[in-house]
C-alpha cells in the first residue's frame, strides 16, 4: 500500500500532511492557469520542484522512473502537432502545426510539473497521513472514512483474492482463452459478496464499541510556522507567473 512512500527522515517528511497537500494543490493550480507561452515561468516552476526535491531526499532517478505514469498523455500530445490545423512549420522534413506544437507543450509541461509535485507529496507522506491531512482540511468525512477503510482492507482483499486464485489453480484451472474466464468472473463476484459481508461484520464491531455515526476526530493542527514554510512553494510559483507575464 505504501509503494510510493520513501521512508526517510527529512524536513519535508516531517511537515504536517495538510500543509503539504495545500501547497501541492495550490502549486498545481498556478501551473495549470499559467498561459502556455510563458516559457520562463515553466522553467522557474521546474527549478522550484528541484529545490523541494533536494531537502526531501528524494532521488531524481526515482522521480523520473515514477513519472513514466504520464507517458500515455505524452503520446497523445505527440499526435497534436502532426494532426493539428492552422499555420505549419517544417522540421526535419515533417510539416508540423504551430498550434499543435503549443498544445503539445502545454500538456507535457503542465502534466509533468503536476505529476512531479504529486510524486513529491506521495514520497514524503504516508497514505495514513494523507488521509488525516485531508480530514483536517475539512474534506467530507464520508470520503476520508471510505479511504481509511480502503487503506485498512485493501491488503485483506488482495489476500482473499490470492487465496481464491491458488484454490482455483490447485484444481487444475488454467485459463488460456477468454471464454475460460468464467471461473475468474465468478471469483470476482464472490469476492464482492465476501467484502460486503465483512462490511456488515465490521459495522457490528464498530457499534459494539460505541460508534454513533461519526469517527472520533483526528486531534492536532499544523503550527503556523509549517504553513508559512510550505506556502513558499505556491507563493514563489505565483510570483514567477506574475513576473513572467509582466516582462515583455
Amino acid at each position: 500500500m505504501e509503494r510510493l512512500f520513501l521512508d526517510r527522515d527529512s524536513r519535508v517528511h516531517r511537515l504536517s500532511p495538510e500543509v503539504k497537500i495545500a501547497a501541492v494543490l495550490l502549486f498545481t493550480v498556478v501551473v495549470v492557469i499559467t498561459p502556455r507561452e510563458e516559457f520562463t515561468a515553466f522553467a522557474g516552476y521546474a527549478v522550484l520542484i528541484a529545490l523541494v526535491t533536494a531537502p526531501a531526499r528524494v532521488p531524481a532517478g526515482w522521480l523520473l522512473r515514477r513519472s513514466t505514469i504520464e507517458l500515455p498523455f505524452v503520446l497523445l500530445a505527440v499526435l497534436l502537432p502532426i494532426f493539428g490545423h492552422g499555420e505549419r512549420v517544417d522540421w526535419l522534413g515533417l510539416s508540423l502545426s504551430v498550434d499543435g506544437l503549443y498544445g503539445a507543450w502545454n500538456i507535457v509541461a503542465k502534466g509533468t510539473l503536476g505529476v512531479l509535485a504529486s510524486l513529491l507529496l506521495a514520497a514524503t507522506t504516508t497514505m495514513r497521513d494523507l488521509i488525516s491531512g485531508l480530514d483536517r482540511l475539512r474534506c467530507p468525512a464520508v470520503i476520508t472514512q471510505i479511504m481509511t477503510f480502503m487503506l485498512r482492507y485493501v491488503d485483506v482483499l488482495i489476500d482473499d483474492a490470492r487465496r481464491m486464485r491458488i484454490a482455483r489453480l490447485a484444481r487444475a484451472y488454467d485459463p488460456r482463452f477468454l471464454w475460460q474466464a468464467k471461473a475468474f468472473a465468478v471469483g470476482v463476484g464472490s469476492l464482492f459478496l465476501r467484502s460486503y459481508e465483512r462490511g456488515e461484520r465490521v459495522y457490528l464491531a464498530m457499534l459494539s464499541r460505541g460508534y454513533t455515526g461519526t469517527m472520533p476526530s483526528v486531534a492536532g493542527r499544523a503550527p503556523a510556522r509549517e504553513w508559512a514554510i510550505s506556502s513558499a512553494l505556491p507563493v514563489a510559483a505565483a510570483g514567477m507567473a506574475v513576473a513572467a507575464a509582466a516582462l515583455p
Binding site: 495514513r128 481509511t148 477503510f149 482492507y153 461484520r201 465490521v202 464491531a205 459494539s208
Partner: peptide, 15 residues
Amino acid sequence: VGVVFQDPDDQLFMP
C-alpha cells in the same frame, strides 16, 4: 460490555 468478535480483521478496522 466488551465484545471481542471472532475474526480480528472485522474488529481491527483502523489503519
